[in-house]
Design a protein around this nucleic acid. Structure first.
Lengths: 238, 238
DNA sequence: GTAGAATTCAAACGCCCGTTTGAATTCGGA
DNA sequence: TCCGAATTCAAACGGGCGTTTGAATTCTAC
């Protein structure tokens, strides 16, 4: 028997193991992004990372735990930054509530910063995140829920103050739409290459992207809710 | 050697094989939705469909071709319906171009009809589609591109007439955002269960959903483009 | 310098995968 | 009725999977 595995709770954290762990996390980030969770093999992953096959199970316990570690490494700081930015804006706004634009920017900018920082995973990580959003695997959904719950609740309150004309239900739906457009756009597999026109004429630039996304989302959030009387007459044919 | 496989081009299409093929397609639709392409096993799939393991390779050739057949069965009619609806609206609008709302509804309503029709896959299929959108596997991306190219080009023209103030680039981006919010919403894994509040108070109703989504998207499409002078001052800190 | 823990390593375990095979069966038209 | 094509079937093929093992090695503190 080996000298005994480290207890799951202990954090060895010496230089050598941190290096191996980091190499695994980096390789996992790009492999999970490229092939998805299920189709990524630990053999290919460890070989790309230049570490032994058993290292994943030694350092992370299992493939699932490795996946969660990959997400945590980036999401925790990003969501923390989002909350701090929102709170700074609330302080700066004084008694008045921050505007919809300001709140939205506080949400978008940390994601943009992450996308531009290759040392923090860059676009690779955001694409991975976009895939994770669409994955129905329970361990992924539960994990993301836990990661996002606090941040989302915080922003929902802020938007509620900035958009008092919307009911809570309306606001919940609209935040859903915002997250959809955002994750889909940031995941940026260029959707279906249907929009290739853009990348042909215009360099794919994340800052420019958010300058286009922001007015779209702000206008959507500010739209008057549909009155009950107006319906989609088309649905039932005719 | 067996009596010889049917040539890939021939379409046997007799009752017995159609039945087996349909059973496979139905099972594949729900299994691919639930587990994703890679994690779905043909053994589980064929056993759920009540057919022999070899039937998939016999009738469809391979797992990949089966996946494409699952998508084609629903997408072809839906996109055809979208185009027909758009053309009807263009005829009804006469010389004037149809409004943004009208065009958008022509896009959304066939998806809604599909979602409500359990005989055509219902929500299962739309969730599957939402996953496929986020999948970077080349065979999926190329297939979806081919499936959507005509429809998207058609709609882009219609929107261009309805929104002449937008440059082609702006319009392309906004359609990208629209597709994002739409696919994310229709895929409706309830996102991250972060929005559970909605399903608690309000029955999950697709028609109601589109009545909330439409004003959001219409307002986003109609938003004035951001002037170059306004920037995200926050990006570089400060 | 050495004991003991942490880490790396090659090898193996048991299992499931997509696909192919060739015989058995069913089907449809002459 | 019967023949050939279409379809179903059980079995096997070769290979990759996540994980575990126990010895070998490296690190660290005394």
């Amino acid at each position: 028997m080996p000298a005994s595995r480290p207890a799951r709770k202990s954090v060895p954290q010496d230089a050598a193991s941190a290096d191996t762990k980091t190499r695994i996390l980096d390789a996992a980030e790009s492999q999970f992004m490229e092939h998805g969770f299920e189709a990524t093999s630990l053999r290919g992953l460890t070989s790309a990372a230049g570490v032994n096959l058993a290292a994943v199970n030694y350092h992370f316990g299992s493939k699932e735990e490795l996946f969660q570690a990959v997400l945590t490494r980036r999401l925790d700081p990003m969501n923390q930054e989002r909350i701090e930015l929102l709170e700074r804006m609330e302080r700066e706004a004084g008694e008045r509530a921050p505007s919809v634009e300001k709140i939205l920017f506080a949400m978008l900018v940390p994601a943009l910063r992450l996308a531009r920082d290759e040392r923090r995973g860059g676009k690779n990580f955001l694409r991975l995140l976009g895939r994770a959003y669409a994955d129905p695997a329970p361990f992924i959904r539960n994990f993301l829920s836990a990661q996002y719950a606090g941040m989302i609740a915080r922003y929902k309150e802020a938007f509620h103050l900035a958009l008092p004309q919307l009911t809570r239900q309306e606001l919940t739906w609209r935040l859903h739409f915002v997250m959809g457009a955002l994750s889909y756009t940031l995941a940026g597999t260029d959707a279906l290459k249907l929009f290739a026109q853009v990348t042909a004429f215009e360099k794919y630039d994340d800052e420019l992207l958010l300058q286009r996304l922001a007015p779209f989302l702000v206008a959507g959030l500010r739209a008057p809710p549909l009155a009950d009387s107006r319906k989609l007459e088309l649905v039932s044919g005719g």
